[in-house]
Each structure stands twice: as C-alpha cells, then as structure tokens.
Design a protein around this nucleic acid. Structure first.
Length: 737
DNA sequence: GAGCACTGC
C-alpha cells in the first residue's frame, strides 16, 4: 500500500469525524508523554460533547447516552488520563485491575478514541483466553460505541471472523488466534496496540505471545517500518509486579475493582473426605445462614453428581417445613440447556412471608473463571481441582486431582462478593492455606508438552529457543523431548532447522503427530479417511457411555467397531454420521450414544482442515473400494507412519511395555481391539487405577521396521515374541537389501 | 473392565 493512499484515508477520516491522530503516526517525536496525554484529553472532551458518532457519522442513539452514564461510573474512568499518558510515553504498560473495574471493556475504547487505530491501516487488538469472552465483549463494546458489530468493532475466533479489514479499528480475539496471525505476520504489522487481557491466567498462548512481543517490540519502535507497537498487559491483582519486572520495569497502573467484602472461614482440623465435608457444609448453610445462593467447587463430573444427590437427600431430611433447596450440577460436558439452568433464580418462600428458598450450584473450575453466577453469597471451597500435569521423563500428560493455589482460592472466595457481602468456607485449615498451598498455579507452559509450542516458535522465526525469553521457562528436558519428537517426525532436521514438512505441519491447528499423519496420508492413499479420523480425535469424546445405560452404549458402539483399531472405529462412526440426513442427525446421535455437539464440531474441524489441505496442495484421496469398504491396512500404515514413537508390545504376562520408556501399560477397557495383538500404537496414556493406553490401533513389526528402523534398539529389548518378530523382519529387510 | 478439569488453533 502506497503512502499516498494512506494519506488520503487519513484526510477522509479527519473530515468526517473529530478523531485526530496524535500518536498512531509516530511522527510527533518531540512530544513527551504528558503533552500527548493533554492532546488526548482535549480529543476526548471534544468527543464526549459531540452528538455525532465519529465512527458512523450518525447521531448517537439514546441508548448510547444511557449506557455512557453507567460507563462513566466505572472505576477505570478515574484512571483514563493516567493510562493514556503511560501508554503515550511507554511501549509496554501493565494494568492491574480487579473484577468490576471495567478495564476489559473501557481501556480498548480509550485507545481507539484517541486515535491509535486508523481504519484500513492499523487496529487495536485485545486478546482473551476464551472464545465466549472474545465474542461477548466485542458485542458489548460495539453496543457501547453505538456501532455495528463486525464493522468498527469486531472479533476473530477459530471458525469465525466477524471483522472487516477496511473498517474495523478494535478487534477482540482469542490469544491463540493472535498467535496464528503472528505466524503469517511475525511483526504483527497491522496492530498499533495489543492489549493482552487476563494475562494472569497464563495460558500457553498468552505466555508464548509475551515472549514473542519481547522480540517484536524492539523491531516496532517509533519510526520503524510498521510504526510503533504498544502493548498493554492486563492482569488481576497479586502478580502484576511479576509482569512488571518481566517487562523490564514497565509502568504499573492499579485500578481498583468494585466488589463486596467476603468473610473467610477455615476448618479447625483437616477434612479427610472433602466431598462429604462439602455436602455437610452446604446443608449446614441452608439450616443456619441467611438467604443467598451457594456455590460449591468440586473436581469432576462424577464427584459433582454424587454430591448433588447427597445434598438433595440432606435437604429432604430437613422436612417439608424447611425452605426449599434446589441443586444444580455444572461442568463443561453438560449439555448447554442444562448448564443454563444454573441461572434460574432461587425458589421463593414455601408460605407467604416465610423464609425464601435457596439454590446450590455444584461446579468444576468452570465457575472459577469462565462462568459467573449472580446472587452467590456463600462459597464452599474444598481446595482441590483437576490439573494437567506433564512428566517429560515418561512423556505423559495426565489429569490429577491437586491442591489449588492461594490465587485460585482467592478467586473462588471472590465469587461470593459480586452482589453483596458474602462468606467463603474453606474446607482446610488456615495454616494449610498459608503453608501448603502455592501462591499461584503453575502456568500451563510448565505443565504441557512443548512440541507444538516449539514448532510454532520455529515458524515464527525464533531459532534460539534456549534464550527465548519465557516468563517461566519450561524445563530443559521438556524442550529436549519436543525437539527430539519434531526431529523424529521430520519437522526439524538434525541441526534443528525447520524442514518443508515442518513448515507445512505448523500450518495445521493440530498436534505435530496428527499434522504429520494428515500431510503424509496421501502416500497411503487415504487422506479422506485420515482427515476424518484426525477431526474426530480433535474434539471431546464422541462415544458416550452414561453409567445407567452402559450396556446399550457399548452395543451401539459395537456397530462401528473395527476389531483392529479404535481409530478406525472412530472413522466408521464419523462416516456413518455424515451419511445421515442433517435433520435426522440429532436423533441418530441420541440413538447411537454419540455426543452430537462433539461430532458436529468435528465436522467444523474437518472443514477447516480440508481448506488448509487445499492451500497446502495435499490431495484428497480415498482407500475406499468400489464395495464401499476401507482398505484398513493402509489406514493402519498411515497411523503407524506418524505414531511409531507411541508404540507398545505384548509381554508374556498380558500387559504391554512401551518402546523406549519401558512403561508397563494395559489396554483401556473402552478399546474395541480384539484379543491381545503383538504390537499396538496408542493415542494417549490415562493414569488412573492402572496405566492405561487409550485409543489403540494394532500395528505390525514389519511396518515398524520399514518406517522407523532407527527407532528400535533391539539390544535393549526384553526377550519376547514381539522382539523375535522384529528380528525376523530386520533380517528380511536386510535380505531385500 | 473404566472415568473427560478447563481452554485454544
């Protein structure tokens, strides 16, 4: 885009509105922060007294003015000029804002109002960890600015881009989406300001973005090719200082929130059974405390359903005269209709003038950040949640019930004070709170496999991973494992440089093994089948198995079963679903114990993958014969080709031993695999009552020897039939030359 | 013979 067209746009903008561009140009090199801020202030005053909306050129609606009145009450308004001054004179500013401060909706607006964005040229971007947040905040802000969603204000999430390159000046997007954009535009050239919201959550994407910004900011100083890039990092209280020091002493602005005090109670003694204690406490509150709803935090579906049942029974025991108590479970795999029930108001009194009823929500961590329930006055916090842990030694990611952090505990108790003063009952001792709990939850980057992150960073042009400035650097062993895997997959060469295959893999929104599987699948003549398998594996569990109808569910699944492969079973179910007419699909899913939300999102993923495949020139070919049957051998070969490092072999005792790590594992009972094959490859470990491997496909020694001769170290193999078979295959291979 | 916390591309 030439300079003259830029100038023209600017002129157009200026003539149709009162927006002036004091900083976005980066031409005002003589200005210091405070004079810029004064200009901003003048601009804002002009704006606020105007009756014409500069973004639309139309008069403001009456709704705009009424919303403006409430906006002006938000605590963040007191800090508007301070913030703008800090942003004007610094590249990075850290904002610490409590809930209710209004920072998320207002700060991005302050920035566009003073001209940081130029329509069609630069925009202000604001990241969110979750899609719902990105879409709902964008909608709210569009309403506040009295503009059309998708024009002046927009959002971008996976599968959905509601923004416009010509007119959008403020865009909300998920942190993962911004990372994707960075892969094609490493200097983030279309952004003039990036607001990283909810940075304290420390999602994988936020952490990578922060490290990336540390590299990008020196290249986006004033006067650089794409102009100056500003960054506003927004965090909840407590760890803002950590962000400040990470960003080399960037100014820190503290914005107070607006919440009510919450009284904290601890138990005198540690509780042995936290579910039972939580149930007891809920009943106790119902008996003894004033009106107000209760929120109970537990760790998983089963625990929650059990606790709900016990609380209902406890309430029944109180008799018909006690006020009514309604109990709702809440976890993510619950159908949306049932999730919405938590918002139904608590029941009224049983008799006119009597004490009102009460609502109890028993929830996973979803209620800690993702969902806010109004009217909660009491919180019960047993102090646990399920957390992902990664063990690089055995290369296993698993879910473990673990103690929460003090930051989480404070977040949970805060849920009691959103509408009025509340109480929080922590089912552990005060001593335990201070001595046993960690201050903050380990960031996700320290609990995850790094293969995908490493691939992303390489694609972003960052070669020196060892010196990449992570806020919390992952363990060297975790990085080593990632580099090793990517080398095995052929994404990185022996020097650690990205290969053409690696570049293609980075384009796909998948784990590296799955990317490789998809890219190489045409070699096995089955990319149509592999894209279905990969899509079905990228979504939550498709086969449902409710405890009360386990047998029927197993029978339904058996119709799709392929005795050699859980992966192909998944493929059969998915392919059957696609054959069903759209209007009958919901019923079909119900009849066949298929999770309809899940399989529908698999279809979305597939659509996206096929678009990328077209772009990368990966042909779509099928191994389906004229009889409609798959050549399952070639599918299993395609699986083996990408997953030979996740292989286990049968031992005499009937258990399996993983190659390289020598872990004893067992076939998961949900597997449809027939008998005990010699060689299996597996998708995941499930560390529960035993070390299970889940989603398993039988493979063959000869394929492994063909596809991954370098991977198998026969000298260190225990004596077993699998080894004998492998040796035989090697000999055959030698003879073949 | 069993259990998927929560996100995201």
């Amino acid at each position: 885009m030439g300079k003259s067209s830029d100038r023209k746009r600017k002129v157009n903008l200026d003539s149709s509105s009162s927006i002036t561009n004091t900083t976005a140009d980066n031409n005002d090199t003589n200005d210091d922060g405070s004079s810029l801020a004064k200009k901003h202030q003048a601009t804002l005053s002009a704006r606020q007294s105007s009756s014409i909306n500069p973004w639309t050129g139309r008069s403001y609606s009456s709704r705009y003015h009424s919303i403006l009145q409430t906006r002006l009450q938000l605590p963040v308004y007191q800090f508007q000029s301070q913030l703008l001054e800090a942003v004007a004179s610094n590249q990075i500013v850290v904002v610490e804002g409590e809930t209710g401060s209004g920072k998320t909706t207002q700060i991005p607006q302050f920035l566009v109002e003073v001209g940081y964005a130029l329509p069609g040229k630069t925009i202000v971007g604001c990241t969110q960890p979750r899609r719902v947040a990105a879409t709902s905040i964008a909608a709210r802000v569009a309403e506040e600015m009295d503009v059309t969603l998708g024009k002046t204000v927009g959002y971008t999430i996976r599968f959905e881009d509601v923004s416009d390159s010509e007119s959008t000046v403020l865009k909300f997007l998920t942190d993962g989406m911004l990372l994707r954009e960075a892969m094609n535009d490493p200097l983030l050239s279309k952004y003039s300001v990036i607001v990283l919201d909810e940075a304290h959550e420390r999602t994988l994407a936020t952490d990578v973005l922060m490290g990336l910004l540390m590299e990008v900011l020196p290249k986006r100083k004033k006067g650089s090719k794409f102009g100056e890039l500003k960054v506003v990092v927004m965090s909840a209280t407590l760890d803002a200082e950590k962000f400040q020091s990470y960003f080399h002493g960037a100014p820190l602005l503290k914005v107070p929130g607006r919440t009510f005090p919450v009284e904290i109670f601890y138990t005198a003694e540690p509780e042995r059974n936290y579910v039972e204690a939580a149930v007891r406490t809920a009943i106790q509150i119902h008996k003894c405390e004033g009106p107000g709803d209760i929120l109970v935090f537990l760790t998983g579906e089963q625990e929650i359903e059990q606790a709900c049942e016990e609380i209902r029974l406890g309430a029944q025991d109180m008799g018909k005269d006690a006020p009514e108590l309604v109990v709702y479970p809440l976890y993510s795999s619950l159908p949306p209709a049932q999730q919405k029930k938590i918002f139904t108001p608590a029941p009224g009194p049983r008799v006119v003038g009597g004490p009102p009823g009460r609502k109890v929500v028993v929830s996973t961590n979803i209620a800690e950040t993702s969902l806010t329930i109004d009217g909660i006055v009491y919180v019960i916090d047993p102090g646990f949640s399920k957390q992902k842990v990664y063990n690089p030694r055995i290369r296993v990611e698993s879910l473990l019930v673990s103690p929460i952090s003090r930051a989480s505990a404070r977040q949970r108790s805060g849920r009691a004070g959103r509408t009025r003063p509340g109480k929080c009952f922590r089912l552990y001792t005060e001593q335990s709170f201070y001595n046993d709990l960690q201050e903050t939850t380990y960031p996700e980057i320290l609990r995850s496999k790094m293969a995908n992150v490493v691939l992303t960073l390489k694609k972003l042009g960052i070669d020196d991973l060892v010196h990449f400035d992570f806020m919390d650097p992952p363990a060297p062993e975790t990085l080593m494992r990632a580099l090793e895997l990517l080398n095995y997959l052929g994404a990185l060469d022996d020097e650690g440089d990205m290969t053409d295959l690696g570049r293609q893999m980075a384009e796909l929104p998948l784990d590296p093994q799955l990317s490789k599987m998809l890219i190489c699948s045409p070699d096995f003549n089955c990319s149509e089948e592999i894209v279905n398998i990969v899509a079905a594996m990228s979504v939550p569990q498709i086969f449902m198995r409710p405890r009360e109808s386990a047998k029927a569910a197993d029978e339904a699944k058996a119709q799709f079963a392929d005795a050699t492969s859980d992966h192909i079973t998944l493929l059969n179910a998915y392919a059957a679903y696609e054959e069903v007419p759209i209007e009958e699909r919901k019923q079909w899913c119900w009849d066949n114990f298929i999770n309809d939300r899940s399989i529908a999102s698999a279809q979305n993923v597939k659509k996206q993958l096929r678009n990328i495949m077209t772009r990368l020139d990966i042909p779509l070919v099928t191994c389906r014969g004229s009889n409609g049957k798959y050549d399952t051998n070639t599918i299993r070969m395609a699986l083996t080709n990408a997953m030979y490092m996740q292989v286990a072999y049968l031992q005499r005792q009937g258990s399996y031993l993983t190659v390289k790590d020598n872990q004893i594992v067992y076939l998961h009972p949900s597997s449809v695999i027939d008998g005990k094959p010699q060689w299996v490859l597996f998708e995941e470990f499930a560390l529960t009552s035993k070390n299970y491997i889940r989603t398993v496909t039988t493979t063959r020694g000869e394929w492994l020897v063909d596809m991954a001769p370098h991977y198998f170290d026969l000298d260190n193999f225990p004596e077993c039939e699998a080894k004998d078979e492998l040796i035989l295959e090697y000999k055959k291979k030698l003879r073949r030359g």
